[in-house]
Design a binder for these strands. Structure first.
Lengths: 157, 157
DNA sequence: GTTTGTGCAAATTTTTTGCATTACA
DNA sequence: TGTAATGCAAAAAATTTGCACAAAC
């Protein structure tokens, strides 16, 4: 599936969701979805706002927050809180479940996947009689040779 | 080790840290440490502020933020970000490493421990050539019978 | 006696809300 | 055309900063 195909499919999901819940299908909402899926990276609301403004969209922060809320509800995006007081988001349609490794030197975010997390999740749900709906595993640390290769550009020390 | 003994030990750690780093040992700093260790639960800065004010401490938010920064640096407390724009903290001296299960209905936080997380952590560190310093695994969901028993008091639906 | 740390209030940063206007249905 | 959604700006919430005074060292 190409990125354009993914965007078309995601828009279909969004259309369905909006219809089902009696929300209007505004241009702004689809523009936000499209730009998020074109970004193809983690983003915060302010940077998305600046990004869309730079592409001459007429959009407000209020609409971004509003639309992001809707996109979260229909699972087209995911929200992350990586230990800072700033929420980060990322597209999640047709993107496999994954967790994050956050470099505390260069702020780069790496993704990984491990089936054992699902096992822990369902086991803990059973033991504690809890319906686990989602999980988030964050590994914080420092990239080793990645910073030598120039990936970790903003290394502190 | 009783709680009082833990507090005494934690204060010793803090004293050491402050001396070593040329910071002054002020009454405020030790009061904050003590109140946090007496709380014995997750807390945010504002609630700690209100709590200490109610105990007639003369303390400011600025000092709380400042002291919390120091306590984080010497690992006497841990910071959590459970998907909200509000940092939660908890005492961490003489308290075993654990992860969190967050009920999205009643906001209760349960703790658990699973050795497989350490395995994932070191394996991913090796694969991605990353020095993992810490991890955070959050399981989000809804408590089942706990809410029937009245533990989950603020259940939404 | 210096100088760091404190309280207070003002400033920042991130997110939410109120309201007049726009545009979807 | 009626009403939900928008843009804008102001408010709220969480955290940080500046400055005069207090208290460690």
């Amino acid at each position: 599936m190409t990125n354009q195909e993914t965007i078309v499919a995601a828009k279909k999901v969004f259309t369905n969701y909006l219809e089902k819940h009696g929300h209007r299908r505004t241009n702004e909402r689809f523009s936000v979805l499209e730009e998020i899926y074109l970004l193809n990276d983690h983003f915060d609301v302010e940077s998305l706002f600046v990004h869309m403004k730079s592409k001459s969209y007429r959009i407000s922060r209020a609409t971004l927050y509003n639309t992001i809320e809707l996109l979260l509800e229909c699972d087209l995006i995911t929200r992350h809180q990586f230990g800072k007081n700033l929420a980060l988001f990322e597209r999640s349609y047709a993107y496999k479940q994954h967790d994050h490794l956050i470099c505390q030197d260069c702020e780069h975010i790496f993704e990984f996947c491990d089936p054992r997390i699902q096992q822990i999740q369902s086991m803990m749900g059973d033991i504690l009689r809890f319906d686990v709906a989602a999980h988030a595993l964050h590994l914080f640390g420092h990239c080793r040779e990645l910073k030598d290769k120039g990936v970790c550009k903003h290394h502190k020390g």
